[in-house]
Amino acid sequence: MTGPRTTTPGAPLVAARRINHRYGGGRRWWSATPLPPVLRDVDLDIATGESVGLIGESGSGKSTLGRILLQLNRQSAGQVVFDGQDTAALTEAQLRVLRRRMQLVFQNPYASVNRRFTIAAALTDPLRVNGIGDEASRIDRARELLGLVGLPEMMLDRYPHELSGGQLQRVCVARALILSPSFLVADEPTASLDSSSATQVVDLLARARTEFGLSLLFISHDLSVVSRVADRIAVLYQGTLVEIGPTEQILAEPAHPYTRALREAIPNPDPRTRPAVRSRPASEPDTELTGAGCRFVTRCPVTLPVCHDVTPPLLPVAAGRSVACHRVPADTVDGVGADPDVRRQEEDQP
Rank of each mutant, 00 (worst) to 15 (best):
L95F: 09
V242P: 02
W29H: 07
V42Y: 01
T64P: 11
V317Q: 00
Q238I: 03
V302R: 13
Y159I: 03
I68F: 08
E248Q: 10
P316T: 01
M154K: 15
P4K: 11
D187H: 08
L146W: 00
T240C: 11
N130K: 10
R170Q: 05
Q103P: 10
V225P: 08
P301R: 13
V277A: 06
A186P: 11
G133Q: 11
Q200V: 05
S195C: 05
R5C: 04
W30G: 04
T33L: 05
T303W: 03
S60V: 03
L217F: 01
R115Y: 04
T210W: 05
L70I: 08
T6L: 08
A16F: 01
G239K: 01
G213Y: 12
S31L: 01
A15K: 15
I55Q: 11
L216H: 07
P305A: 04
D203C: 01
V242C: 08
T287C: 02
R209P: 12
R344Q: 11
E144A: 07
L184Q: 13
A16M: 14
P271N: 11
T87A: 04
H308P: 01
P246I: 02
T48G: 12
N268M: 08
E153P: 02
R344D: 12
G245F: 00
Q349T: 13
V201H: 02
I178E: 14
R99C: 02
V317I: 04
N73L: 07
Y258E: 14
A142K: 13
A142D: 10
V113F: 02
S227Y: 05
P281V: 01
V310M: 10
R343D: 13
P160N: 07
F117H: 13
A292K: 14
L177R: 12
G59P: 09
I132G: 05
Q169L: 01
P181V: 10
L204S: 02
A252K: 14
R158V: 04
L70G: 12
Q249R: 14
V113N: 04
Y23A: 02
P312R: 00
H21R: 10
D125M: 04
R228Q: 14
A208I: 04
T118S: 12
G245V: 00
L72F: 09
N130G: 05
I119E: 14
L90T: 02
G61D: 10
L262H: 15
L13N: 14
H308G: 03
N73A: 04
F82P: 00
S279G: 08
S58F: 10
P269G: 08
P329R: 11
A252C: 08
E288Y: 12
E284L: 09
P246T: 10
A318K: 00
I233E: 00
N20S: 11
L179S: 08
L315V: 13
R18S: 10
R344N: 05
L304H: 12
L148S: 09
M102P: 09
V225G: 06
L204E: 08
A292S: 13
R280S: 09
A261G: 10
S197M: 04
A88T: 13
T273L: 06
V333Y: 00
H21L: 06
E347L: 07
R74M: 07
D83H: 13
I46Q: 01
G335R: 09
E248I: 05
L145K: 13
N114I: 06
H161Q: 10
